[in-house]
Simulated scan of single mutants.
Amino acid sequence: MTVRRSLLAAGPLLATLPAGSRAQLASGVPQPGNLQGTWTVTVEGDIRYRTWSVHGTEGPRLLSDYGWAGAHPREVEARVTGAPGQRSLFIVTPSNAMIEAREVAPGRFEGLFVRSNGSRSRIGLVQESPDGAVPLSSPAPQAGRLIVYLGAPDCPSCRLFETPAYRGSYETAPEARKVPLRAVLAPSYRRPDAASWPADLSWVPEQIGARHVPLFLAISERRIAYACAGLTRWDENMRPLARRWAGLA
């Protein structure tokens, strides 16, 4: 059975789904809920991340694109079944690999990445924040500016951010000397509200409310100037903002 046929047949996760979800999948009823937007996709062992962007639905299909971050994405076959909070996700990638994942928290799926040769790795998908407006700023550096990163040890996207390719790259860059990065860790992605905030940042939790991790905050003079979640937002929005704040762009 090919990967594509496996998706259409619902894959090995089907047998473990609740009866209602199995019936929905058999009838092809989509349950998109609030899946629209960009998702960070991390595969265990890979040093880069992928993105999955959901644009809408067409019958039983999710209209979506998938690919390496920074590369041209390609349309993929995808569907989701089950009620919000208990959904199962199935995607066939352009390389004919298959993603089978379950919803483990709002805006988060975890499961398996099954390559066309049959090898498997764990996969995590995290919904990113909307691409909101990034504040413009005077190029003159100012004191009291910093970037705060909120993560968790059981968050695959957070573990990837902690590598030299992301956090390490920033901390050795010129902008980090003027706009330092500070890390705050929560015990779990399920409990970002339980993070241990240092005394000088104790005012932040009341300002951010419930957010996905990894979360990035641009802080200027005890004010959150910009907030975003996800590695794409880090690359495309937060890092350029830091360079402007440091007077380098």
Rank of each mutant, 00 (worst) to 15 (best):
R145L: 02
P187R: 04
E75V: 15
A19S: 11
P84E: 13
P130I: 13
A26L: 15
E162F: 04
T42Q: 15
A26G: 13
R177G: 04
S121P: 03
L112P: 04
L35K: 00
P180V: 11
P94A: 12
S88L: 10
R239T: 05
G85C: 10
T40G: 06
G70A: 10
I219Y: 01
P156V: 08
S21K: 01
G45W: 07
V54Y: 03
L25P: 00
W68D: 15
R239N: 06
V29C: 07
T93W: 05
F161A: 02
P180G: 07
L7V: 15
E110Y: 08
L125V: 06
L248W: 03
R50L: 14
F109W: 08
A15G: 11
V80H: 07
V3R: 12
A26K: 12
L181S: 05
A152W: 00
T38V: 15
S95C: 06
F113N: 04
R5K: 12
T81M: 12
A105G: 04
R5N: 14
A199Q: 13
R239V: 07
V29Y: 07
I208F: 06
S121Y: 03
P60I: 15
S137Q: 09
I99D: 01
P12K: 07
L7C: 11
F161Q: 00
V179T: 03
P240C: 02
L89H: 01
L63D: 05
A9G: 13
D200L: 05
P214F: 07
M98F: 08
I47N: 15
W203P: 05
S21H: 06
G144R: 02
F109T: 02
E162T: 06
A10V: 10
T57N: 09
S169M: 05
D46E: 14
T93A: 10
T51L: 03
V204W: 00
P187W: 03
R4F: 13
P32D: 11
C228G: 09
V204H: 03
S64T: 09
G118S: 10
P174Q: 05
S196T: 15
A105M: 02
D154P: 01
P135V: 09
P164I: 07
P60D: 10
A165G: 10
A10W: 06
L17C: 13
N117V: 08
R191T: 14
G11A: 13
E171H: 12
A249P: 04
I47P: 02
V29A: 13
H212Q: 14
P12E: 12
M1G: 09
S21Q: 09
A83H: 08
L125G: 02
A23N: 12
A199I: 15
S64G: 10
R159L: 15
G37L: 08
I219N: 00
A105E: 07
A173R: 02
F216N: 01
Y189W: 13
L136F: 09
S53D: 09
Q31G: 08
S6F: 06
P198K: 03
G82E: 01
E128F: 06
P139W: 06
T16C: 04
P94Q: 12
T232A: 10
P106E: 11
R108C: 05
G168R: 07
G85H: 11
L89E: 00
K178H: 11
R108I: 03
R182Y: 10
P60K: 11
